[in-house]
């Protein structure tokens, strides 16, 4: 028996919004420790890794490890049927071929349940090595989303250059070029507005704008985003999900032909 309850549907709706543009389907691996989803996008250029910890759920029971393959488009449709302040319970029997989403209104007067067929997904699971990154940038997630949107107008690719002075985002194409420089915040009054750079070595890497823009769909989950970079390895874009866990996107850098 698997049962996981959250007192508020909003967070689950935001999580689905953050992954459904990149992934059509995914396997949710459920265990005592929580729920994990790891999946590559269709073109296998990026990887999404979602971790939700069991102790942050309002109720969590997982008698046996369970892998549930879900169509994320269908799951998003079902979650749209929940009001933001509804309690959500996800339930499945052991070895079941369906999962049930139950929504309960705050006054307990409306209860709805939606059953969804599970899928058998033959997905590759990739091992992500522990890496000490040369540069780690923390910045407001809205600012990152804005920069990705603005620079995508100029080129398919964006160069991110990080030094101890700051981080520079650049794009150039037939229309012209764009550069946005952010200096490290000197005086942190509000932590969520700060730009903080931890640098061991300067890094310059090039990434496809369309994936970065897809990652910014997670912006409503967290005020801050963390970018971790080292030469010649995938970028990590991480959004924390309050005390529940995190979503990390990995993106392979472009390399010169």
């Amino acid at each position: 028996m698997f049962e996981a309850r959250l007192m508020n549907a909003t967070i689950l709706k935001k999580i689905l919004d953050a992954v459904k543009d990149l992934l059509n389907e995914g396997t949710f691996d459920c265990s005592d420790s929580g729920i994990q989803l790891q999946a590559m996008d269709n073109s296998h250029v990026s990887l999404v890794s979602l971790t939700l910890r069991s102790d942050s759920f309002d109720k969590f029971r997982c008698d046996r490890n369970l892998s549930m393959g879900m169509n994320l488009g269908t799951m998003a449709k079902i979650l749209k049927c929940a009001n933001n302040d509804d309690t959500v319970t996800i339930k499945a029997q052991d070895n079941a071929d369906t999962v049930t989403f139950m929504f309960e209104s705050q006054n307990h007067e409306k209860v709805s349940d939606y059953e969804m067929k599970l899928m058998n997904l033959d997905q590759e699971h990739l091992g992500i090595p522990d890496t000490d990154y040369s540069c780690v940038v923390r910045m407001p997630s809205m600012e990152f989303a804005r920069i990705c949107r603005d620079l995508a107008q100029f080129s398919e690719s964006m160069v991110i250059c990080c030094t101890k002075e700051g981080v520079k985002f650049s794009a150039s194409g037939d229309l012209g070029s764009a550069n946005v420089k952010l200096a490290q915040t000197s005086n942190v009054d509000k932590e969520e507005e700060a730009v903080i750079i931890e640098m061991q070595e300067p890094v310059t890497l090039t990434f496809a704008c369309r994936y970065l823009n897809a990652f910014t769909k997670a912006t409503p989950l967290c005020n801050q985003v963390q970018l971790s970079m080292s030469a010649d390895v995938p970028l990590v874009v991480e959004y924390r999900i309050s005390d529940l866990g995190h979503i990390r996107y990995y993106l392979a850098p472009k390399i010169e032909e």
Partner: peptide, 12 residues
Amino acid sequence: MQPTIASFFKKD
């Protein structure tokens, strides 16, 4: 050139 993510991370 755009490499795949699997060229960086090995299969588990």
